[in-house]
Design a protein around this nucleic acid. Structure first.
Length: 413
RNA sequence: CGGGGUUUGGCGCAGUUGGUAGCGCGCGCGCUUUGGGAGCGUGAGGUCAUCAGUUCGAGUCUGAUAACCCCGACCA
């Protein structure tokens, strides 16, 4: 992409009503635009980043047998009546509205009910199981208080996978597989070292659920972490009985603030009972489907990454999810020509600052603010050496890289 | 939803006892500059959140409403 073709601009100042560092930087860098409290647009750069986060998740979900679909945000009332979750007393985050033709509907805040109902059309035999279906979906939650930029919003992107298994054994096996998969995802997203599997309340469905909590001072949760074992307990279930149950030693636990970036739940028969999702086993006997749900919020993850990895100069994206890998600055007419050619070879990897009205200092500042992993400077000096100057976003030293080596790099991922 | 705060050009802010609405950034134009957010000059840009009052006169005083922020509660 050429900067001149991008309609967003960077800003030296952040809006006063934004308090979280990640939101300030994302707004200043032109990744997001605020519509209202807890509702943000993803601008071109932000959308590429969000899509890349989603792609990492998609690859890992596919690797464990996930099958992607896309359900609707508009939700029919009857599917939710069946489970008893239509009432505002049970689910207080509903956005509901009325159909002009009569009747009520809701904006989806989660998708257990509609998907379980959908599966009644396709699951009838043990041969049809297991099924692992997932989607990336905009969820709507009428939170009383949105906060922390894109980390807690009323409209957000969610990856939700639902597992449909023959029995608990089959379910447990997948559940662990998914937990492993989540670890891989957070590693690839650059927050693996600070993200821990955390025991949390299982709610109405089971004894525990597993959350994936990323250590950050702006987190909303308190967890008790055993670093050696790499697992933690959420404050909400933190007591002696639970610690004994999990075999954790109280004296080894550190209290930390963390943000929930993912969670996995054993749902059991909660929804298959309510919606009557059954299958015939080998003996032709009717059995209930055993379910689980597995969520990651890519938009929140984006906020957490921005929060954790950025520095005083701006955002810092891990290579895998940066909107572009190289930020190219050209100094001089010949360098401009070379940079244009390089850009045209790999417009997906290069963001070329082709502005003629911006000073170099401004371009360097923007390269930092946007958080692009590598900065490439091309000038008459470097061209005389048949090379370009390379600087990593996270380092201060620059080094010369032969031009043909850089060109070769452009081919690879 | 309880408590506290805020609202003035795109952004950040000032605006005294009520008396013609200002500054910085950004934006346009010109000249000079050009490896870390340039300098000088010159312009454009405002229903002062909204509504209703008080007053000869309201950004300023009164009341209501809305939006936004923070703390708490809530958070499949």
């Amino acid at each position: 992409m050429k900067i001149s073709q991008n309609f967003t601009k960077t800003s030296k100042t952040a809006p006063a009503d934004e308090q979280s560092e990640s939101a300030k930087l994302l707004l200043r860098a032109g990744y997001i635009y605020k519509e209202m409290a807890g509702v943000y647009d993803y601008l071109p750069l932000g959308m590429i980043t969000l899509e890349k986060i989603m792609q990492v998740i998609r690859e890992e979900m596919n690797a464990i047998g996930g099958q992607e679909l896309k359900m609707t945000a508009l939700q029919p009332r009857d599917a939710w009546e069946a489970s008893g979750r239509w009432s505002d007393d049970v689910m207080d985050v509903w956005f509901k509205t009325k159909l002009n033709a009569g009747g009520e509907l809701g904006l989806g805040c989660t998708h257990e009910e509609p998907l379980t109902r959908l599966m009644k059309s396709y699951i009838s035999s043990y041969k049809d199981l297991p099924v692992y279906a997932y989607q990336f979906q905009t969820k709507f939650r009428n939170e009383l208080r949105a906060k922390s930029g894109i980390m807690r919003t009323r409209e957000f992107m969610m990856k939700d996978l639902y597992s449909f298994s023959k029995n608990r054994e089959e379910h447990d096996e997948f559940y662990e597989k998914c937990a492993e998969s989540y670890k891989k995802i957070f590693n690839r997203l650059g927050i693996g070292n600070d993200t821990f599997r955390t025991f949390a309340s299982g709610g109405a469905f089971s004894k525990y659920s597993d959350e994936f909590q990323t250590l950050t001072k702006v987190g909303e949760d308190i967890i008790y972490l055993d670093r050696e074992k790499g697992i933690a307990v959420n404050e909400e279930v933190y007591n002696d009985e639970v610690l004994a149950d999990l075999g954790l030693d109280k004296s080894k636990l550190e209290q930390c603030k963390a943000a929930e970036v993912g969670n996995i739940f054993t749902l059991g028969y909660r929804f298959s009972d309510a919606i009557d999702l059954t299958y015939n086993d080998e003996d032709g006997k009717r059995q209930k489907v055993f379910m689980g749900s597995y969520g990651i919020g890519p938009s929140r993850v984006m906020g957490v990454i921005a929060e954790k990895l950025s520095d005083d100069k701006g955002l810092v994206w891990p290579e895998e999810i940066a909107p572009f890998k190289y930020y190219v600055v050209a100094i001089g007419d010949e360098a401009m020509k070379v940079a244009t050619e390089l850009h045209d070879k790999a417009p997906e990897q290069i963001i070329f600052d082709d502005r003629t009205n911006a000073r170099n200092g401004e371009k360097f500042a923007d390269a930092d603010l946007l958080g692009i992993p590598y900065r490439i400077v091309i000038s008459d000096k470097t061209l005389a050496d048949k090379s370009v100057e390379l600087k990593k976003r996270t380092e201060t030293e620059t080094k010369l890289l032969p031009l043909d080596e850089f060109v070769a790099k452009l081919g690879q991922k």
